[in-house]
Design a protein around this nucleic acid. Structure first.
Length: 807
DNA sequence: AGCACGCCGACT
DNA sequence: GTCGGCGTGCTC
């Protein structure tokens, strides 16, 4: 089979006409062509290797030929942009269908793979074919639609089909019987200490001696990886010992994880719907009734009752025998949030990061069997095998955590829209501060706009004060961390026994060590990122690679003993706070103090019970916390967020200010919100203070258009990474040159190569190229095709489609 | 991705 | 010989 034929028989041919309302349908086709072209190219490359293959073939000739009645195309979890063909014997033939997992031997190892297509013929030379060893499922683990979705992910996000499948399947399903095998070593039978003499004393056999001695001492199998790592040897000496017949290598099954039990917490909530809510529910219910794809932006401020809309729509779906998926940002996946759904619907499957592999498998099976019809979870829950899917909810759709940081680098919100389109479901994107992409889609009528105007509770929105920090200096003229206004409000709030939250988006005490002579800042020599002073450790730490060094006495670049600390992190805020309000009970939440989930819950619990007056924290306190007694919220500096090297910095700043502002004045007590900044005219800050997202979005939308950024263009980022800087530079400039030659500047604009924002990370040099293409046209799909051809493994190349950040 | 295989240079 | 460190190419 191989080329066109196989695809036309199998599911692979069902080329999905889907996309994010752009030209992706065309993208998908072109990317598939690239996949095929690659396959053809590979075939030619085989010629050189023919001799080796023949040798193997002769050895194998003794075995009886495989009696194939069917051929299966199979996707393996490897970054290979193609599938492999296996023969299927009569015994397995009826069970081998697309979506079923099989066990196959691939490059000498037994692996779990997913059948993507079947055919009755093949082009693959018979001598090279292997047979499917086992069929692992009676029923496909993925139905046709989900399989199609994984194919779309592979094409759109430029990864292997097997990698896309790997993101969809629970970890336990990627191993046989939920187990994985590992290579172990032990002495050959009959080998004891006496045999060590053969190796002793000869310096050249030193490694082998150490390996054998360690294995004899261990009196049992040792993991190969552990041993080579511990003894700092390569596979070479191990292999030599095998040849001498002194040791044996074996593959064994790794121990499975233990099954833990989770608990549930319910929270009843029923309210009469506002007019806006009722309109939204009605509109969405109509779409459910019509089995119609209906993407909608549910747009309303915090407390406007988005959750109640989700709940009602899901109720309607369930009443019609349909299921639902609710995506929430990982950080919002708390017992409180989940409780609403658990309470309203009987059978809810919750997927969270704390679960073991076996727990996830259990949930997956319960969903697939139809026992659980509502799934609540973070990013990967978008792949839950919900039967007869009627509704997908993406809460806080603007959250960057929906973009996966590793392969496949998918955006769960975008996948949600595509999946809903495939199955004709409703897709509700909810946010108070929508992403510019979704806002524009709604404005352009590609999404239904459902606006929730009034706050369901009727509370007025809190007033936000912008404080200009340019005027705030102490007696010696140095910039102050707390404005006089914030200081006064803090004292008053504490005096009234009300609570305050202070937000700072930096960690540590003083982030930067700065030389007064040469104006250099101390940077991590492996990451090129400014190192941060951690007072408790008395050390400088790199937030990128976690490296720590003692605080240098003199400047490393000019040797002047003129180092000073600059800036302020959460720890410094806490410290100054203790000076301002010595009797206040202060809690701090950042990734330094919050090592475990329990720490997080404990501090929040204390604050909730009123045992703390002030909570100081980083990003992690900006979202989703709901404390009625908080009446003061301060953003110590909104500037850091504004000055990120990213075209979404303004959007993020608006979201930050808006979210933090949402922490105050939620109950009957009036709230104060103070935003400290030196950029008082910045639209993101001004509009957020005025709770005016529309004005901000209009302004930002125009900026994006003017600078040619999404949602007016598409971006694709390629990062090369290697220890050898020269190789990285060569590969990236070669790629950029080819891309420029092949693609006209009107099709795709090629920017770079340039050092990536983290130009040096863990000793690896990083260079990136940014591609920008207009929304219409085939630019990006052609770029993807070219890139897949340039796919070398020397400098590692990573493709990020629709990158969420430039870091 | 792994992982063999082959080649080279260093050491002894 | 032995060993480690590369680069190259393959896996149905």
């Amino acid at each position: 089979m191989g080329t066109g034929k196989s695809r036309s028989n199998g599911i692979g041919a069902a080329r999905p006409e889907m996309g994010l309302f752009g030209p992706e349908a065309a993208d998908v086709v072109a990317a598939s062509d690239a996949r095929r072209a690659h396959k053809g190219a590979n075939k030619g490359a085989h010629k050189g290797a023919q001799k080796g293959a023949q040798k193997k073939g002769q050895q194998k000739a003794k075995k009886p030929p495989i009696e194939a009645v069917l051929y299966a195309e199979v996707a393996l979890n490897r970054p290979m942009r193609r599938e492999y063909t296996y023969a299927v014997t009569a015994a397995f033939a009826d069970r081998v269908v697309p979506g079923v997992r099989v066990a196959v031997s691939f490059s000498g190892k037994r692996e779990v793979a997913v059948v993507t297509a079947t055919a009755t013929e093949t082009d693959v030379p018979k001598g090279r074919l292997k047979a499917v060893d086992d069929v692992l499922d009676d029923e496909p683990v993925l139905d046709e639609k989900l399989l199609e979705l994984t194919r779309w992910i592979a094409d759109y996000y430029a990864c292997a089909w097997g990698e896309a499948l790997s993101a969809v399947l629970p970890a336990a399903m990627k191993r046989e019987g939920g187990r994985k095998t590992v290579a172990v070593l032990y002495p050959a039978p009959g080998v004891d200490e006496s045999r060590l003499e053969e190796l002793e004393g000869k310096p050249s056999l030193e490694k082998q001696y150490r390996v054998l001695r360690t294995l004899l001492d261990a009196r049992g199998p040792v993991l190969r990886k552990d041993l080579t790592k511990k003894l700092n040897v390569t596979f070479g000496p191990v292999q030599s010992l095998v040849k001498r017949g002194l040791i044996v290598i074996d593959q064994v099954i790794a121990a499975p994880d233990d099954l833990l039990s989770g608990d549930r917490e319910a929270r009843p909530r029923h309210a009469a719907l506002t007019d806006d809510q009722a309109t939204a529910v009605t509109r969405l219910t109509e779409a459910i009734d019509a089995d119609e794809f209906c993407p909608a932006l549910l747009y309303g401020v915090t407390g406007s009752g988005k959750t109640e809309v989700y709940l009602r729509v899901i109720e309607e779906a369930l009443a019609r025998g349909k299921g639902a998926i609710v995506l929430v940002p990982e950080i919002a996946l708390t017992p409180q949030t989940v409780g609403w759904f658990l309470d309203r619907f009987g059978s809810v499957a919750v997927l969270h990061s704390g679960m073991t592999d076996l727990q996830r498998l259990d949930m997956w099976q319960r969903v697939r069997s139809g026992e659980a019809r509502v799934v609540v979870g973070a990013r990967s829950a978008i792949f839950a095998p919900v039967k007869n899917l009627g509704v997908i909810v993406v809460d806080e759709e603007h959250e960057p955590s929906y973009k996966q940081g590793s392969v496949p680098r998918y955006h769960a919100r975008d996948v949600a829209v595509v999946r809903a389109k495939n199955v004709g479901a409703v897709c509700v994107l909810g946010s108070a501060t929508p992403s510019l992409e979704s806002w524009r889609n709604a404005n352009q009528k590609r999404y239904v706009l459902l606006r929730l105007r009034a706050r369901a509770s009727g509370n007025p929105l809190p007033k936000v004060e912008i404080v200009d920090m340019r005027g705030e200096r102490d007696e010696r003229g140095k910039p102050r961390l707390f404005s006089r206004r914030l200081e006064t409000l803090l004292r008053e709030t504490i005096a009234r026994s009300e609570q305050s939250i202070l937000f700072i988006n930096r960690r540590g005490f003083a982030p930067i060590l700065w030389c007064q002579e040469c104006h250099e800042t101390l940077k991590c020599n492996e990451c090129d990122v400014a190192m941060t002073w951690h007072k408790r450790l008395e050390r400088m730490a790199c937030h990128s690679c976690c490296k720590e060094i003692p605080v240098p006495k003199a400047c490393p670049s000019c040797t002047a003993p003129a180092l000073r600390f600059l800036g302020a992190g959460s720890q410094r805020v806490e410290e100054i706070l203790r000076l301002i309000a010595p009797h206040a009970r202060v809690g701090r939440m950042d990734s330094d103090t919050m090592m475990r989930r329990e720490d997080y819950e404990e501090t929040l619990g204390q604050f909730g019970r009123g045992e703390l007056d002030v909570l100081v924290g980083t990003q992690m306190i900006a979202k989703g916390l709901d404390f009625p007694r908080v009446t003061l919220v301060g953003i110590v500096s909104a500037d850091a967020s504004l000055h990120q090297p990213d075209f979404r910095a303004s959007e993020r700043t608006y979201q930050l200010v808006s979210q933090v502002a949402g922490r105050a004045g939620r109950a009957d007590l009036p709230g104060h919100i103070v935003v400290q900044t030196t950029a008082t005219e910045e639209p993101s800050i001004v509009c957020a203070a005025a709770h005016d997202y529309d004005s901000f979005a209009l302004h930002e939308d125009a900026e994006r258009e003017r600078h040619g950024y999404p949602p007016y263009t598409r971006l694709l980022r390629v990062v090369w990474e290697d220890e050898d800087e020269k190789r990285v530079l060569e590969a990236s400039s070669h790629a950029a040159k080819i891309l420029r030659e092949e693609l006209g500047p009107h099709q795709v604009q090629v920017m770079g190569p340039a050092p990536a924002p983290m130009a040096l990370q863990r000793g690896r040099h990083r260079v990136h190229v940014m591609l920008k293409a207009p929304l219409s046209g085939q630019g990006m799909s052609r770029a993807r095709a070219i890139l897949s051809q340039l796919h070398t493994q020397r400098p590692r190349m990573a493709i990020d489609v629709d990158p969420a950040s430039m870091m």
